[in-house]
Design a protein around this nucleic acid. Sequence first.
RNA 1: GGGCGCGUAGCUCAAUUGGCAGAGCAACUGACUCUUAAUCAGUAGGUUGAAGGUUCGAUUCCUUCCGCGCUCACCA
Length: 501
Amino acid sequence: MSLEDELLKQRLNRIREIEALGYRPYGRRYEFTSTIPEILAEHGAQTAEELSPEVRLRVAGRLMTLRHMGKAGFAHLQQNGERLQIYVKKDAVGERDFQLFKMLDMGDIVGVEGYLFRTRTGELSIHAEKLEFLSKTLLSMPEKWHGLEDVEIRYRQRYLDLIANPEVRKVFVTRARIIAVLRRELEARGFIEVETPMMQPLYGGATARPFVTHHNTLDIDLYLRIAPELYLKRLIVGGLERVYEINRNFRNEGLSKQHNPEFTMLEFYQAYTDYRGLMDLSAELLARVAMEATGSGVVEYLGHKLDFTRIERFSMREAVMRFWEGEGCPTVEDVSDPAWLRLHSDKATTGEALADIFERHVEAKLIQPTIIFDYPVETSPLSKNKPEEPAFVERFEIYAAGMEIGNAYTELNDPQEQRRRFEMQFAMRERGDEEAHQMDEDYVRALAYAMPPTGGEGIGIDRLTMILTGARSIRDVILFPLLRPEGPIGLADQLRQFDQP
RNA sequence: GGGCGCGUAGCUCAAUUGGCAGAGCAACUGACUCUUAAUCAGUAGGUUGAAGGUUCGAUUCCUUCCGCGCUCACCA
């Protein structure tokens, strides 16, 4: 019999022993008086004297350490990522509860009733007077002081990661707070949250390859959305003048430290503003989110201090000049000169060449939060042209730590121009660009009912969370990142082998 | 998809030039009524990711496959 089988058998035997003592191996409702973090917050600084008269409590949690000493013992209970020690003395809990205590395994979930005290070494602890058994672990916990380090297990079995690595819990608590702050700030500005289709007959709003699925009854293929954009703007047409959506987008692309096939995007649209208005709003939102998520508008990320309180702004052409490194730094004339652009990129048009040069020479250097504005029209099929410079559009992206975290523009609301853009995209598609936009005729029809001038923006929640939590990989901010399927686990077979009616 | 690297006990990791697979934690037995990486004495635990090859002998060298990581390409 393998070690794993023996361990499982021991634990299953122990369930019967626990039952024989008169406890349920999988307990019921347990009324605790406060959570462990609450107890630590309230009493963590109190001296032994201040803990009298007795503070009586009922707490529940997972057993994370266990130290037996004959007729007494210590253990730590963990709840909501924090630990409180319990002291179990035979004289205090009685014969039956002490028998139970001796049977406990690390990872078991128990309830403890008793009073707070300080041990000889000063640690706040509960002097147990009554134990309740709440749930049995059959598998052993990760190693106690290295924690769980195997990256694959951390992602596949995130529950173990969350039990063993308290900082992981903090990342996801921060992620939740980031989203909550964004919702609150947008609501405060009159935005309403909406939900638009994830399954779409046409995909659009971004350049990416989609996932395809199928609806049986209608017998049609549908695409998992690559962006909600075109639906949100239909709502602007309909008079929902400030809308936002925080939800998943799906892009059938490669995986990397900055890319997961499903990722969370905030998109918001505001009627009667433009990209300048959104720059100001973005700066306010980001500063506020950074402050509330980390306690400061200046955030440390992988050795850099990122200042979200003053976000610099450059046009794409300025950025190419400013961040160019090495020989041949371009001049103002160069960055607008088709010959110079063609010389430094093999892209088909001057606009695509500029964007290409920007991506290769500048993007990775944008460590400080930075807004880059005025994009070439070729790369922006849904943005409005700059009136004085029709080859460019009123668009900006937000960069931080070398990553693109936001994208915004003055929305194109001229249906005739939108039709031309779709047809231009179609031509790019004919030339082999699989990611070029499809024609969405209903969207053109919506614009034909008149959409107010509008600014729209998307912010990548995962990447923003990476920066605000110090995560190197997008997988560290997504609870269950996409991995290859694991294959047979074998636990069901093991359990069946030891199942006794 | 390409390149590089990793995979050893439940967990974290060793193993010299190719020469008897090991430690700590976890587990099990026992001692211990203020410990906290508790301590002390003892016990058990391995298809070295999988399959094949070279060799007297493979954790070690070779091939293929599986999984993961890094990186490049693509993308946000």
